[in-house]
């Protein structure tokens, strides 16, 4: 399956910036001395996706569904067990360590915990000049000016240049992390739960900032979050993960208005803001990723599961233009 081939999802003339096929990652779990065998956590299984230039793709799913691992695989911060990541025509797997380091200027990451992602002993100015030096060969006065320009871009000022991260609030630190990610002039950013640790008023501020910058700079964004209301606001398309597999992908409005996969429907109904009439609460919990269920991985919690659901892994197939789901049933009303 190639999402990119669908003209409804991506205009034909627009080549995807990031394109991923068959991406899988297993983390080995060592056996122990009592004879438990070595096993593997199947964190990501056979994921295909594309991100167009300037597009915001949301990734949602419950804890352990593989969201962060997908993000890290896209930037090749972890080696895939299988599959390819192609960035603007370049297969990242073909790059050596040095080439990869240089290539990273095009792809940056923002994390949930802005404090952990900034070096406490580096002033904000130094933290911003580091990538400028590394990726853009800027030094001295030019780098300083550029760093101040970056601070201003994220709503801070030259006054903040010489301060240390601890002097900033959570929202300000996240602004600094965003400025740092922008320093190398990337075209693609993976934002992993960037507003999850923030209070709602600060979250609104940071979301607005990200949205404005993304539009102004034409950035492509992989926006990872477990908060469906945040994802609805900022994304163009959404991909739903469960136990490392893609359950559904669609344009944001389409996904929220007409979810086609039982898991997506369940997630939307479980969200605290759910406004619909009847609310079905999904029972059970996510099974272990060491031994995921056979066939459809969602079948142990799916209210619509049939005997066939245990047989084969449902393929991701197009149910409406640009709207894909991995579920064998078309006869269910969600």
């Amino acid at each position: 399956m190639m999402l990119a081939e669908n003209s409804e999802v991506q205009p034909v003339d627009q080549r995807p910036l990031v394109s991923v096929t068959g991406l899988s990652k297993q983390f080995p779990v060592r056996g122990n001395s009592w004879g438990a065998p070595a096993q593997a956590v199947r964190a990501v299984e056979d994921v295909d996706l594309t991100v167009a230039p300037g597009e915001v793709l949301g990734v949602v799913g419950e804890s352990g569904s593989g969201k962060s691992t997908v993000g890290r695989l896209l930037l090749r911060l972890v080696e895939p067990s299988a599959g390819k990541v192609i960035f603007d025509g370049q297969d990242l797997g073909d790059l050596g360590p040095d080439e990869l380091r240089k290539f990273r200027r095009h792809m940056q990451m923002i994390f949930q915990d802005p404090f952990a992602s900034l070096n406490a002993r580096m002033t904000v100015g130094d933290a911003l000049m580091e990538p400028l030096k590394l990726h853009r060969q800027q030094r001295g006065r030019a780098a300083e000016d550029e760093a101040v320009a970056l601070l201003e871009k994220v709503g801070l000022s030259a006054d903040h240049f010489k301060r240390y991260p601890r002097a900033f609030s959570g929202g300000q630190r996240q602004r600094i992390a965003i400025a740092r990610a922008l320093a190398s002039s990337p075209r693609f950013i993976v934002a992993d739960e960037p507003v999850s640790a923030l209070d709602v008023s600060v979250q609104a501020e940071v979301l607005n900032l990200m949205q404005n910058l993304q539009q102004e700079l034409g950035l492509a964004l992989l926006f990872i979050s477990h908060d469906l209301s945040v994802v609805e606001v900022i994304t163009d398309r959404v991909m739903v993960l469960y136990l490392g597999r893609v359950m559904e992908v669609a344009r944001t409005e389409e996904l929220y208005d007409n979810p086609a996969h039982p898991y997506t429907a369940a997630l939307l109904q479980a969200a605290p803001g759910y406004a619909g009439e009847s609310r079905q609460i999904l029972g059970g919990e996510i099974p272990s990723p060491i031994a995921p269920p056979s066939g459809c991985v969602f079948r142990t919690r799916c209210p619509f599961a049939l005997a066939e659901c245990a047989q084969t892994v449902p393929a991701l197939r197009e149910v409406r233009p640009g709207h894909y789901k991995a579920c064998i049933r078309d006869d269910i009303a969600l």
Partner: peptide, 18 residues
């Protein structure tokens, strides 16, 4: 501040930080 793309009448709404 609560993120929600649409208001009651289905229109897009922008977030208003405090």
């Amino acid at each position: 501040c609560i993120p929600s793309r649409r208001d009651g009448s289905g229109n897009r709404r922008s977030l208003q930080p405090i």
